[in-house]
Write a protein that binds this DNA or RNA. Sequence first.
DNA 1: CCTAAAAATATTCCTTTTCATATAATAACG
DNA 2: CGTTATTATATGAAAAGGAATATTTTTAGG
Lengths: 161, 161
Amino acid sequence: MSGAPGQGAPVDAGAAGETRFVDTYLLYLLARASSVASAEFHEEVRARGVPVTVWRILASLKGTAGLTVGDLARSCLANQPAISKMVDKLVIRGLLSRQTDGDDRRRVWVRLTETGEAEVDGLIAAAERHQARLLEAIGPGEAEVLKRALTLLIEHAAPDP
Amino acid sequence: MSGAPGQGAPVDAGAAGETRFVDTYLLYLLARASSVASAEFHEEVRARGVPVTVWRILASLKGTAGLTVGDLARSCLANQPAISKMVDKLVIRGLLSRQTDGDDRRRVWVRLTETGEAEVDGLIAAAERHQARLLEAIGPGEAEVLKRALTLLIEHAAPDP
DNA sequence: CCTAAAAATATTCCTTTTCATATAATAACG
DNA sequence: CGTTATTATATGAAAAGGAATATTTTTAGG
């Protein structure tokens, strides 16, 4: 008696008539693009035993002389408490160091240790290889168009605080 | 914008002229654009007492005759167990219904109830208002360029199963 | 100065997500 | 057909994340 839904064939995921609101919704398109473009590389990162959040923390610090906890959180697109806790663990694991600022003792500088540098260097090399493949797949011209449009969007959507 | 992460410009890298790897990394630019562009509206959604995951579930179902749990999870860019559990709660709250497929009893169809439809209609109206403002801010031509580039990226990065 | 407000980080509590696996049903194949 | 593989969803323990708040330090105002 448990009939099939709607008697006729119900929708499958998105094969037929895409009349859903979300399919024309810019924020969804953005989220989806980010998700699918990152999926493959994030898989590779996890396969190396590195959670994506950790990758973001390490990558954000690379090329800096250290970031405060708050700036690090913003760079990781994450909340401050989440980063605070994750930094704890990475300090324990020897990848990061913490140091209270000398002038303003509320602030805490987070830096890569030698071990952390080595770890992130390998990850960045992998990221660059992946990005090269991705850019080749979509074409360099298209990549430039995309980057420019994204930058413009970021500027318009997020006025500097 | 109390709890919303991810706004703002690239973090100060310290010495002038220094450029971090992430600041030229396409996947980071994408994640940041998505985060920044969504932050304001997600704040509005949460202010209505709706977690973002719930918004995604409801919005994904709108305009369909139901989705299976797996398809719903993919549409929400989330894991299957997470969606399975959240659907549980929304069924209890009367926003969704579950029904096992008649032909293939492994599959479970998830649908909006009348209450769920009413809830999502209000959210979608808000989303459309927000999107209109966003598109106006970046300009309609730019929006088209962006949508086209994102669609292309999705097609190239996501091999359809 | 002294006190009130603001800022940066840490902490607490609770919800959600994740990872791995269990369960159940269908498909495939000899 | 019976057995093995595969697919879809659910479940359970552990980790992560988020909202609210505490703590410490600095800044501002009178």
